[in-house]
Design a binder for these strands. Structure first.
Lengths: 147, 147
DNA sequence: TTACCTGCAAAAGGTTTGCAGGCTA
DNA sequence: TAGCCTGCAAACCTTTTGCAGGTAA
């Protein structure tokens, strides 16, 4: 059963690569596996460390490049669109953000409706909820123009 | 009128600092002003550059420390809780995230209700909407335990 | 065989830290 | 005056880049 599940993951991966026009390499499979096998949303560094045991010569460059490729081909997703640098906001009251995925422009969005969403039980079950906000990922007018 | 508005901002700032038990310094006022005067959610680097003209000896350390202090005292807010490093997710279908503000643990949240929110007109007015997700900022069980 | 992929090393950003001197209250 | 704040410089961590050699198809 366990073996079967593993095999399915490998087959899935092969299929996804073929569809995306990507070469199959052991390194890529290892990186994919280290993501699929965990729900901890790893950083490149965490992935590098997990793989290092089986692939002692793996490099950070490969990890970074592979993750970026996977994301571009929609095989995985990136949680952190605004990781590049800290960004601050003078607005401290509850609000939401519209974020351009190309230029990282951030726009405030004040919306009564979004301020009173139903909170899923899973959120408050084990955690103390501080606040929440909705992120709208967009391509802004200016970036759309350019494309 | 203009002068009056400026004066109000300064008074506001003084009040906030007093309430927070912070010393008033010209640098802090300058940093605060550079945020209040703009809705572009600046990075520390952008703030540094804006202030450099009036305060040629300002340092990055001061900008970083001041911004962190302001945020801790709720005078401003940080847009990017997950800027520390890239984080990836094998889940590509629409979902949401529960994020611990202390340890940066990220948990997936799948919710039908949250998948069909009303989209405010402001979002689609000028931009192409790609997707959206709700971020729940929490203190997770483990971190709560520690505090 | 060809194009793509990997690994190395160096460089480039962005952020943090420690400390000495200066300023606010 | 005491304690907090600033500015400098160095260190640190994460990410990117260019290139030479290797591998998948």
């Amino acid at each position: 059963m366990r073996e079967k599940a593993k095999e399915n993951i490998v087959n899935d991966f092969y299929k996804k690569c073929r569809q995306a026009g990507l070469s199959l390499t052991p390194q890529r499979l290892a990186i994919y596996n280290s993501l699929i096998g965990n729900d901890d949303h790893p950083s490149p560094d965490m992935i590098y460390k997990r793989i290092k045991t089986d692939y002692p010569t793996i490099s950070f460059a490969t990890v970074y490049k592979t993750l970026e490729t996977f994301e571009r081909k929609n095989i995985i997703s990136k949680v952190t669109n605004l990781h590049n640098t800290l960004r601050y906001d003078p607005l401290t009251k509850k609000h939401h953000h519209i974020i351009c995925k190309r230029c990282y422009r951030i726009m405030d969005l004040i919306s009564k409706e979004l301020n009173s969403l139903p909170i899923p039980a899973q959120v408050t079950k084990d955690n103390v909820l501080l606040d929440y906000s909705v992120h709208f990922n967009v391509i802004c007018a200016e970036c759309k123009e350019k494309e």
